[in-house]
Nucleic acid binder design. Structure first.
Length: 428
RNA sequence: GGAGGGGUGCCGGAGUCUGGCUGAACGGAACGGUCUUGAAAACCGUCGAGGGUACUGCCCUCCGUGGGUUCGAAUCCCACCCCCUCCGCCA
């Protein structure tokens, strides 16, 4: 959410942002008119309320003195009619403004490449070389099924399409990745470890920007109006909603594991095989709250912290700077990390690193004070996948496969897998 | 799921029966000052947020949330949410 004052003073910047992000359905001029009308209305309303307050006190005094106050009461009844009328008008304008404000996207950082869609994203780094296979490599969905560690058929029986069962060494690998990532970020990178609720309320979904625009992408629990979290970003960024932090609390760094649930209403038909696009997947997520002046430094830190995971797993990847049209509603700047997936013959998104500046903080009312008497300011919030676990599992299966259909276990994961170095060991 | 109790400012806690002078007593914490070689103690003072504006001022709103009654509500009425205790159930 943007600050109404900012919009009032810089409507052209806001219009430019809406345009560059392809969110063409918001009329800034109309909003400005509503804002002006709201302020006029409010001023009038408040002066009438002041009159009523003052008169009511006078009435109290008269009554106490045993005097008659019927004339004043009668007059206030008339004033109240006018107040009610103005209140209705003010509320109407207010709710129009709230609705409109909630649909205005964040303003892209000046460094962000301008563009329409994913073709305009800019590659800013690349690490590792895609492996050249001396045999015909299998896709992870074939490999995993052959090894008996992935079971899609039974998952669709017990739930439905786009769910999967990990079993045996597959489940162990997934769990090892979660533990490895959590340890790395908690111990080496200084994040507090968190396991949040997987169901959140509507206010939380609004706070991080999933609502109102993207309600169709989430799973909702009918009886409570709760949502299954699409990412741990939602519960963790909302942890300090409506709270006042002090500057010494910042930066606040949390690494959270959660299962993630996405309906992906618009994605039917894409990536239908394997683990790439599931309704439920595991993710380790980094979240930071920072001082406004430090958020871009933290942003780069988080990018490199996510990269470390891929490097230690020896998985080739590249880094994209997302263009304005592809970066999302709430972000100011965003990188995507994509790792090499042999079955796709291409790079596949494994992490996205986002700086929201104060956009989420304003929605969720996340504030801090620099000094005891200083006025409250909004923190900056950031997050990064560190990483999406299911896709990492898929990439390990594919990139570490051997000609005999077994899969070597990356060095760093072996301690987390009871020393296992090969999945599907023919001797076992 | 059943039965009670409760949600007030940074914290604790009055006020709610008997609506007005209560944006809120009192205590604590914190901050500034006096005193002191320094500190403690004592004393004095400050001490919520958001918004409007004719803005070194004035005004409005907020006592869990949303409605209602009234000239006027923290206080009365209705609905909902959350927390605590006991019982039941349960990993």
């Amino acid at each position: 959410m943007l600050d109404m004052k900012f919009i009032r003073e810089h409507p052209e910047i806001v219009e430019e942002a809406i345009e560059s992000k392809g969110e063409g359905d918001v009329d800034v001029q109309e909003l400005l008119e509503a804002d002006a009308a709201w302020r006029a209305c409010t001023t009038e309303l408040e002066s009438l309320r002041a009159l009523r307050n003052e008169t009511s006190k006078a009435i109290g005094k008269r009554k106490k003195a045993g005097e008659d106050a019927d004339d004043m009461i009668l007059r206030m009844r008339e004033v109240n009619e006018e107040i009610a009328r103005l209140e209705g008008e003010t509320q109407g304008l207010q709710s129009f403004m709230d609705t409109t404000l909630a649909l205005i996207p964040n303003i892209p950082h000046p460094d962000v490449p301008r563009g329409i869609d994913e073709d305009d994203n800019v590659e800013v780094a690349r690490w590792g070389e895609p492996r050249v296979f001396e045999f015909e490599p299998l896709a992870h969905w074939d490999l995993g099924v052959n090894l008996g560690i992935l079971d899609f058929e039974r998952a669709s029986k017990i739930t439905g399409a786009r769910f999967s069962i990990l079993r045996g060494a597959g489940a162990l690998l997934e769990r090892a990745l979660i533990c490895y990532m959590m340890d790395l970020h908690a111990v080496d990178h200084g994040y507090e470890e968190v396991i949040p609720p997987y169901l959140v309320n509507r206010d939380s979904m609004f706070g991080t920007g999933q609502l109102p625009k993207f309600e169709d992408d989430a799973f909702r629990v009918d009886r409570q109006d709760y949502f299954l979290v699409p990412t741990a970003e939602v519960p963790v960024t909302n942890m300090y909603r409506n709270e006042m932090l002090s500057a010494t609390d910042l930066p606040l760094k949390m690494v959270a594991y959660s299962a993630c649930f996405r309906a992906e209403a618009g994605a039917a038909g894409r990536d239908t095989r394997g683990l790439i696009r599931q309704h439920q997947f595991n993710k380790v997520e980094l979240v930071q709250y920072t001082l406004p002046e430090n958020s871009y430094e933290a942003f780069e830190d988080m990018r490199s912290q996510a990269e470390v995971v891929l490097r230690r797993l020896q998985l080739p990847y590249r880094v994209l700077s997302m263009c304005t049209g592809d970066m999302g509603f709430a972000q100011s700047k965003k990188y995507d990390l994509e790792l090499w997936m042999p079955s796709y013959g291409d790079y596949v998104e494994i992490s996205s690193i986002s700086n929201f500046e104060d956009f989420q903080a304003r929605r969720a009312n996340l504030r801090f004070r620099r000094e005891r008497d200083a006025r409250p300011e909004f923190v900056h919030t950031l997050n990064a996948s560190g990483l999406a676990v299911g896709r990492t599992t898929a990439a390990i299966l594919e990139n570490y496969q051997n000609p005999d259909g077994t899969v070597s276990v990356p060095e760093v994961l072996r301690p987390y897998m009871r020393g296992m170095d090969l999945i599907g060991n023919p001797l076992a």
